[in-house]
Design a binder for these strands. Structure first.
Lengths: 229, 229
DNA sequence: ATACTATGTGTATAGTTAACACTAAGCAAT
DNA sequence: ATTGCTTAGTGTTAACTATACACATAGTAT
């Protein structure tokens, strides 16, 4: 997805090339944020876009997504899943390129240094409510990622990837509320969470000026799909 | 996906190319069938594989899937949705190629002439229970397609694409049972179908030697997603 | 001791899902 | 016209799930 404002490449290759685009979410200051880069070159110079890059011939598509994350924010072993492949001919006006999109989630955003100074574009966290039109079809990809996250929240334990190792139930409920964008009933939320039997007690909060909450951690961070049918 | 047993192309291109592979389902003689081709060339000579082909530079990924279907079985305007992209480096031992898989459904299989005699490989319908290991990673793709079909059966009106224009509720239930691979309760099935309010009456069966059933048709064949949350 | 603040807990109601068996309608054979 | 055959069509109950709702509790700070 790094372009130098070159002439169209439609004639240059008989077949189309592929790239990975990443929707990286994290909760920051009570808001859902996505990772964006500012484009350096035409035709989207100065516009915001999702981070991403070409898939190399010696790496799997999944590995490409992992490499991109590592290059952009220097971390590994985060939750990641493939979303959808966007393949309109003119989705990138200057090169025929198919985008395979990925969703990635980051729990503890503090440890992360955004690599804004190297060979890549500047890179930012931005609250999703403040994101306006992105370059390419990236607004559509972002929308798709958000709807996938919302639905997985309900039938999987995916939320564990947006929480620290130890967390209170209020914290967990807040993350659900931020993503689903509506209030949940505290008692019903707790009942449901306990019924799923995915978390275990892990001590209690300290140093707060009110009743300290019990802390919990997930029994496993492996993706668990809650049976519905 | 048409290969001539050539030497590996891993060095030839810096980036990877993409193809579409199709899982085409139809109900034939009370069984769920998938469309398969017999490979002509090495390294999978004689093996069965999903139909598919390279994405051309001037067509969208969706259009490629439509073109492939049209070339293979000569029909258009069928239900089709993208599934997942398979991107292991060595999934095709001789060329680096990323496969974007599609699910397609065919309702009336009688109108169809399989184009077995042209430039393409021989092409067959095969009951999915009789399909053993396919070439490449196509068994995995088939499995993925089947699980997608099963789950969409429950929360969408996707079954309309596997039924004729007019059908009885018994017929509809049979299709569900074939795909889900278990018996359903007749009364509960009917209650649920009527509650969804997706079908309307369309006459009655004739020329059968038992009580004739009412026929129904779908109010719309547009994909309807039944709200769950 | 009191005020403050976020934590933690139970019950009743409505809605949904699952289990279950007999009658009805048409055709064919006698 | 009666009988037999075959598939269509129909309701009720019980178990479970989801929702709505309000107050006591435990710790800190003053």
């Amino acid at each position: 997805m790094k372009k130098k404002g070159r002439k169209p490449e439609f004639k240059k290759y008989k077949y189309s090339a592929a790239a990975v685009d990443l929707v990286v979410f994290a909760i920051i200051d009570g808001e859902l944020n996505a990772l964006l880069t500012k484009m350096k070159y035409k035709p989207f110079e100065g516009k915001l876009a999702l981070p991403g890059g070409r898939i190399r011939v010696y790496e799997s598509v999944d590995d490409c997504a992992k490499r991109e994350i590592k290059e952009k924010i220097g971390i590994e072993n985060i939750y990641m899943e493939q979303l959808y492949s966007f393949g309109d001919v003119k989705r990138d006006p200057s090169v025929r390129i198919i985008s395979i999109s990925y969703l990635a989630l980051i729990g503890n955003v503090n440890n992360i240094k955004l690599k804004t100074t190297e060979k890549y574009e500047k890179i930012y966290w931005m609250p999703i409510n403040k994101i306006s039109k992105l370059a390419y079809d990236h607004s559509e990809i972002l929308k798709y990622a958000l709807s996938r996250l919302k639905s997985k929240l309900i039938y999987t334990n995916i939320v564990c990837n947006l929480l620290p190792q130890k967390f209170s139930l209020s914290e967990m409920q807040r993350v659900h509320e931020i993503i689903l964008n509506r209030k949940l009933d505290k008692r019903n939320f707790r009942k449901k969470v306990f019924a799923l039997d995915l978390i275990k007690e892990a001590g209690r909060e300290e140093g707060v000026s009110h009743r300290p909450s019990k802390l919990y951690s997930f029994k496993t961070k492996k993706l668990m799909i809650i049976e519905m049918f």
